[in-house]
């Protein structure tokens, strides 16, 4: 996937192969976990964070994921099957790039939480045996690179 800056301050995703679609579609699955409680746990009871702020964060985080899921679905449905004929594109405005960044962050938070032990093992041994973890690791790298490119081109 190529990420290019647009004249209006946003970005354009150019989908080069099927794997890019798979990775983009995986964002919403990987980011499905609710992280709003994680932030409430950082606060004391006096703040009533779980009652006041947590529901707002939950809505905000889930709407980021839903937005990205819909934008990917729409672009996929409108794309031409044959990659040689025309490379599919997704246009993301500067404002939307923040939403994408948030959804990608949730996907990466989820990965860290789910595979913490496997990541530690990988650091020690340099090996991973579980195929699911390997696939998740590649997706996580994709998300990381994508986030870095969003940072490079937008969000100033």
């Amino acid at each position: 996937m190529i990420v290019l800056p647009t004249l209006n301050g946003g970005i354009k995703l150019v989908i080069e192969r099927e794997q890019d679609w798979d990775n983009l579609k995986s964002i919403s699955d990987d980011a499905a976990e609710d992280f709003s409680k994680r932030f409430s746990l950082l606060m004391d009871e006096d703040s009533m964070w779980d009652e006041i702020v947590e529901p707002e964060l939950k809505d905000q985080f889930s709407s980021q994921v839903e937005f990205v899921e819909k934008q990917v679905e729409l672009a996929f449905d409108n794309s031409v099957d044959d990659f040689e004929e025309e490379l599919p594109e997704i246009l993301i405005t500067e404002e939307e790039s923040k939403i994408w960044y948030g959804a990608l962050n949730q996907a990466r938070l989820s990965f860290e939480e789910k595979f913490r032990k496997e990541i530690e093992d990988l650091k020690e041994t340099g090996e991973i045996e579980n195929r699911e973890v390997v696939r998740a690791l590649f997706r996580n790298q994709f998300y990381f690179r994508f986030q870095s490119q969003i940072m490079d081109h937008t969000m100033d």
């Binding site: 992280f35 932030f39 950082l42 606060m43 004391d44 703040s47 702020v53 964060l57 905000q60 985080f61 948030g102 962050n105 949730q106 938070l109």
Partner: peptide, 17 residues
């Protein structure tokens, strides 16, 4: 301070008071 923490959490940064 709570307002700032709220904004930091909204940006998915881990913050506390």
């Amino acid at each position: 301070a709570e307002m700032y923490v709220n904004q930091l959490h909204s940006a998915q940064l881990h913050a506390t008071l």
